[in-house]
């Protein structure tokens, strides 16, 4: 059975529909990519799954249990972790304390002994920064901290919102490595991403969204060749030209 099922979910802001009858499933153990042009509703999708926004229609099932409508913290405790696009550290707390917050409250048994905060910090390469206040961190380190904090929740499903955006290629490769590693350890991952380098390197399946709707689900290589996808990204004329040149070559 699928770990996460999104069924006909619609979210409206005033007259605009950020999500419009979106459906898809994420299987246990996979890395599932979500791409789409700006305004496609990708962040809204993650907000709905993590309970920050309630859908106006449709339902979300996690392990077959209805979770849409539950408060955020409950969904978190069921095992859904979240990494924000814009880093949201707890200012005034140190790096280690930031991670501890997740360990204290996010895990189901709420005992710190089962979560090794220091091991997590080491995993993301921040063990030497443990006692620093977060305000001193660089952007790249803040992204890693977001990661560490989400891992402290010991999630079964991790939602990543454009964690690679604005990072140097080496940093992208580093985080990609971490994503693969935690995935091997059994964490299912849904990643919203613009950086195709990271998507190609990690995802087995990719959902393409456009204007709140489901456009395609396929392997990353297949998706990048899909004319409909090229069209929403680069415009119809470009897609037609590409199709034309492809036809000529074949012919």
């Amino acid at each position: 059975m699928a770990l996460l099922q999104v069924k006909d979910v619609t979210v409206g802001f005033g007259g605009v529909k950020a999500l419009n009858g979106l459906s898809f499933e994420v299987n246990q153990g996979e890395i599932f990519g979500v791409i789409g042009p700006n305004g496609a509703g990708k962040t809204t999708l993650l907000n709905v799954v993590s309970g920050i926004i309630r859908p106006s229609a449709g339902e979300i099932l996690y392990r077959g249990r209805l979770v849409s409508g539950l408060p955020t913290h409950t969904i978190t405790r069921l095992g859904v972790g979240r990494v924000f696009q814009i880093t949201q550290p707890f200012h005034g707390l140190t790096v280690r304390e930031n991670v501890l917050v997740g360990a204290y409250f996010g895990t189901r048994k709420s005992s710190t002994s089962t979560v090794d905060v220091d091991a997590i910090l080491e995993l993301v390469g921040m063990d030497k920064l443990a006692s620093r206040p977060v305000s001193e961190l660089s952007v790249a380190m803040r992204k890693r901290l977001e990661f560490a904090r989400a891992l402290a929740l010991r999630p079964d499903l991790l939602l990543l919102d454009e964690v690679m955006a604005g990072l140097a290629p080496t940093e992208v490769d580093y985080l990609t490595g971490i994503v693969k590693r935690i995935n091997r350890e059994g964490i299912t991952i849904v990643m919203v991403e613009h950086v195709m380098r990271a998507v190609m390197a990690t995802c087995r399946r990719v959902l393409v969204m456009h204007l709140g709707k489901h456009l395609a689900v396929d392997a990353p290589e297949a998706v990048t060749r899909d004319n409909r996808v090229i069209e929403v990204y680069l415009g119809r004329r470009y897609a037609e030209r590409m199709a034309g040149t492809a036809g000529e070559k074949r012919g």
């Binding site: 993590s50 309970g51 920050i52 408060p71 955020t72 913290h73 409950t74 978190t76 405790r77 972790g81 979240r82 924000f84 949201q88 550290p89 707890f90 200012h91 005034g92 707390l93 917050v101 997740g102 409250f105 996010g106 895990t107 904090r149 929740l153």
Partner: peptide, 15 residues
């Protein structure tokens, strides 16, 4: 944590 960032606090499992 709530004072620092309420939304993130919710996602960290804080009621």
């Amino acid at each position: 944590a709530i004072r620092a960032n309420e939304q993130a606090a919710g996602v960290m499992g804080i009621n």
